[in-house]
């Protein structure tokens, strides 16, 4: 048997890019002369690819609101004032569940209570145990419907932007020509009135719109483009059991800009990088309301 110049450990390190360029070149040229070894190395490379294919995207999903640092931190502060704060030492899974993040949103103060009281008081018996957050109930936790809804909006908006908004050639089904026709078309297809804002003053030209899936029914997506070809998507869909009065916006990791207004949920995502959306959230939010109808 011929002595192998490189051990398995060397070959694994080669696949994982852990060797210096010089050694890398040596191993690469050795593999050209050893087809069996090359095949093994190739199979490991494919394993890596498979793992990255299956799990890689988990890092680009929008981070749920309850996992954002501000939320985790306020949950932690509350936990540390609780007398039964023993969970840091030997934490069982159950105890972690109990000291979970969702709790804090109820304790956010009087506004939440007031809303509930008001809703019941005015006869709007809001069925807060609606199915869309039933899975959270399974986790034994009261979840603020607002957080849950904003999270859904964020996910849906990010999906729509990734699926359609970034398509180079066909981001939309329908162009807005003649001007104003898009709103009519969207209304017919999604079943509610959609105001198509003109964002030209903010530098965004309307490309057109399309119908996108929603949890129940359909939502409208409007795609805008700026002079250098960046894209911006505005998604408008229905909200079940809207939280009354709260139209404030949130920027969620993803990033998306989301808010609710009565029965409608709004989401904005853009192909622009980094903190652009967070920096311009206020202006965009206002532009959607202030701008003339397209």
């Amino acid at each position: 048997m011929v002595m192998r110049p490189f051990s398995d450990v060397d070959l694994h390190a080669f696949v994982d890019d852990q060797v210096n360029p010089e050694r890398r070149a040596m191993i690469a040229s050795y593999l050209k002369t050893a087809p069996d070894e090359a095949a093994r190395v190739e199979s490991w490379r494919r394993q890596n690819e498979a793992i990255r294919t299956v799990f890689g995207s988990a890092a680009s999903e929008p981070v749920p609101l309850w996992l954002t640092i501000g939320q985790v931190a306020s949950g932690r502060e509350r936990a540390s004032t609780r007398p039964d704060h023993a969970s840091d030492s030997k934490s069982s899974a159950l105890r972690q569940r109990i000291s979970s993040p969702h709790r804090q949103d109820w304790s956010k103060g009087w506004t939440a209570c007031a809303c509930v009281v008001l809703a019941f008081g005015t006869g709007l018996a809001v069925p807060y145990a609606a199915p869309q957050w039933a899975h959270a109930v399974e986790r034994f936790l009261p979840v603020s419907p607002r957080v849950e809804q904003l999270h859904r909006l964020s996910t849906r908006t990010a999906e729509a932007q990734t699926t359609y908004g970034t398509d180079p050639d066909h981001p939309v089904e329908i162009l807005d020509a003649p001007a104003g026709s898009l709103a009519t078309w969207l209304k017919r297809h999604v079943g509610f009135s959609v105001r198509v804002p003109d964002l030209k003053r903010a530098g965004w030209t309307l490309r057109g719109g399309r119908v996108v899936p929603d949890d129940a029914g359909r939502a409208a997506l409007m795609v805008y483009e700026n002079a250098v070809g960046d894209r911006l998507s505005l998604r408008i869909g229905r909200i079940n059991n809207p939280a009354p009065f709260d139209t404030s916006y949130e920027v969620t990791p993803g990033p998306t800009l989301v808010w609710m207004d009565g029965p409608l949920g709004f989401g904005i995502a853009s192909s622009k990088e980094g903190s652009w959306l967070a920096d311009n959230a206020r202006d965009l939010y206002r532009a959607v309301y202030d701008s003339p109808e397209s």
Partner: peptide, 13 residues
């Protein structure tokens, strides 16, 4: 916050 996506990916796998 910057590392949260990395942690989620690793944890998921």
């Amino acid at each position: 916050a910057r590392f949260t996506p990395n942690l989620r990916r690793y944890a998921r796998a």
